[in-house]
Simulated assay, not measured.
Amino acid sequence: MTHRPRSSARRGDHSHGDVHLHGHGHAHGHDHPGHSHPTGVRGVLHGIFVPHSHDAADSIDDAMEAHSQGIRAVKVSLVLMLVTTVVQAVIVAFSGSVALLADTVHNLSDALTAVPLWIAFVLSRRVATRRYTYGFNRAEDLAGLFIVLMIALSAVVAAVEAIDRMVSPRPMENIGWVIAAGVVGFLGNEAVAVYRIRVGRRIGSAALVADGIHARTDGFTSLAVVAGGIGVLLGFPLADPIVGLLISAMIAVLLVGTVRSVGRRLMDGVEPELVDRAERALGEVIGIDSVDRVRMRWIGHRLHGDALVRTSATTLVDADRLASTAEETVRQRLPNLDEIAVRVVAVGS
């Protein structure tokens, strides 16, 4: 008896499992991704830079809608950063501060990091081909790697600038304008960070979350400028470079977690909580005697997986019904799941 696969509601994809009795299914997630929180110093910084959010509870199970939200987030944040840059440029024109000009150029370059992510989201909407059978969602992970490099570069540049100012102290000019530009930079970057991280978690995009963290680190760098300016006004000229070094150290510590997150995606890693959730869902299905294997991986912000389960059912009809039930159960538990192939085999085989 041959089982005809049902079409995916997203891209017309099909999932075919090799079976003894039956095997195959599609699942679409509705729950939010499992996640863990770092502890120690990195945990504290993670709480500051990437506060916990329950937005993922409303995770999007439609692939095209997720792509659209990702592109919208990139567009909106790009516009916000450009507006921030323009405002800072106006302040530079009034103040004539070379330091502010450098910071403005820095923010403009950071805004443009959204471009490769935008390209990645556009590519992810393309239909899979015979060469790229899983589609083009992996471009998003490559964009995430680029963003990680930009975060690292931001930390290095901030540290070098701070050390240079400690070795060769220079009087800070137009301190009021410097503080004003720092506040503008912080508010603009923070607004972009909140938006990117929220949407990134909702659609399951590690790259978009990383880009949000990038914006937040730049915002705190701008806040360091404000703190340094206030310190200078209070008669402590080394406040600016000292705060700059502290911010660089904070970015470096936070970078470790971001590298792990993006690198894990590139290595087909997945949160163990997601696998546990899938195993529990399958184990609750009446008729499944054991769950031998569950494999999952992120491709961009979409999940793909397969499972091997055993049953005492003796007919193809029973196995087919069992696989369909398993599919419906899993789809209630897993987020952003494009497809999962369930292979059902008889106990003892």
Rank of each mutant, 00 (worst) to 15 (best):
I91A: 09
H52G: 08
A57P: 01
I71C: 11
S59L: 07
V86F: 15
V76T: 14
V92P: 13
I91F: 04
S95C: 06
I71Q: 08
I91Y: 03
M81N: 15
A66L: 04
T85L: 05
V74L: 07
S77T: 15
I91N: 01
H67A: 14
R72Y: 06
V50K: 02
Q88M: 15
V90W: 07
V90N: 05
A56K: 12
D55I: 14
V92D: 06
D55T: 15
A56S: 15
A93W: 15
V90M: 05
G47H: 00
F94A: 13
A66Y: 06
M81G: 12
R72S: 06
I91S: 03
V87L: 14
M64H: 08
S95H: 05
H46F: 03
I48D: 01
D61A: 13
E65P: 00
E65S: 08
G47K: 00
V87K: 07
V79E: 04
V74D: 08
S97E: 00
P51G: 02
K75T: 12
G96Y: 02
D61T: 09
S53T: 07
K75V: 13
F94Q: 08
H46R: 02
H67K: 10
S53H: 10
V92W: 13
M64I: 06
L82T: 10
S68W: 09
Q88N: 14
A93Y: 05
M81P: 02
V74H: 11
A63E: 12
H54T: 11
K75A: 15
A66I: 04
F94D: 07
G70Y: 07
S59C: 11
H67D: 15
L45Y: 01
V87T: 14
V86L: 14
G96R: 04
Q69R: 12
S97H: 01
D62T: 07
I71T: 12
D62V: 05
G96D: 04
M64A: 12
G96L: 02
V92L: 08
Q69K: 10
V83C: 13
G70V: 05
A57V: 10
A93S: 15
S77L: 13
L82S: 08
I48P: 02
F94R: 10
P51R: 02
A93P: 08
A89E: 04
G70K: 05
V87M: 12
D55Y: 11
E65F: 09
E65M: 09
T85M: 09
A57I: 15
S95N: 06
K75M: 14
F49K: 01
V90D: 09
H67T: 15
F94Y: 10
I91K: 03
E65L: 14
V50Y: 00
V92R: 05
S68L: 09
